[in-house]
């Protein structure tokens, strides 16, 4: 099993001092190469769940295991290393570093995992159709092209799982369809699992395994209950 989640809970303090439970997942798992789409409305805890899986956030309770290694019970430094080595992350706003070229952005995706390979970075960008724009900065690219760079970067560290948070949210329908197709195909080619969260029906309809987050996350609709 690639990803295993058990009794995962995460709450945040609200501005009024009350505790707001955002994530409460009893059980969730993924196999290598599996592609799952989770649907959920805005504020349903989709990003928090992905951040917990990526080790960016530490859960209050529960376990997350990635390839048999505990993400939830590890120190922040270990989580950072696991993320650098095993997780690719695609964001809605792409989160490319504006001061860096396409190639450098992809190289950055490799650098913290300790596997810096410029040839592979070039190959990844060629695969997403940006082989001619290696030295372009993000601002010189269209939004669709920027998302392609983000896809290439997410796969730069040979991740076992790619987490995609509303990856088509900033794209027009045509670019969105292309980007989604690219993400799915690239993950297949690289044998990486894909967990995508979106509220876009067009995206969700593309997946054989599409689930409603409220079926998994018991915290939805229970705001304020700690």
């Amino acid at each position: 099993m690639l990803l295993s989640i058990k009794n995962l809970k995460k709450s945040f303090l609200s501005s009024d001092g009350s505790t707001q439970k955002v994530v409460d997942v009893a059980s969730f798992s993924m196999e290598s190469g599996q592609q799952i789409a989770l649907s959920g409305t805005s504020g349903s805890g989709k990003t928090t769940l992905l951040n917990l899986i990526a080790g960016i956030l530490q859960p209050d309770e529960g376990q997350i295991e990635l390839s048999g290694r505990s993400m939830s019970g590890s120190s922040e430094a270990v989580r950072d290393r696991l993320r650098a080595q095993m997780v690719g992350y695609i964001f809605q706003t792409f989160n490319l570093l504006q001061g860096y070229t396409c190639l450098e952005n992809v190289l950055l995706g490799m650098s913290f995992g300790g596997d810096l390979d410029e040839d592979r970075a070039v190959e990844l960008l060629e695969n997403v159709g940006l082989g001619q724009r290696l030295d372009y900065h993000p601002r010189q690219l269209s939004t669709g092209q920027q998302q392609r760079v983000a896809v290439a970067r997410a796969l730069a560290n040979r991740p076992k799982i790619v987490l995609a948070d509303e990856p088509t949210g900033n794209l027009d329908p045509k670019n969105a369809a292309e980007a989604l197709s690219l993400i799915r195909q690239t993950c297949r080619d690289r044998e990486a699992a894909l967990l995508i969260v979106s509220h876009d029906k067009a995206v969700l309809d593309q997946f054989e395994d599409s689930r409603d987050l409220s079926d998994i996350n018991q915290a939805i609709g229970k705001v304020g209950e700690a």
Binding site: I56, A77, R83, L97, L108, G109
Partner: peptide, 15 residues
């Protein structure tokens, strides 16, 4: 934001 991106890519706090 840049620092957060670097951290999301796996950069440690001390890095």
């Amino acid at each position: 934001r840049d620092i957060a991106i670097l951290r999301a890519l796996g950069a440690r706090r001390r890095t």
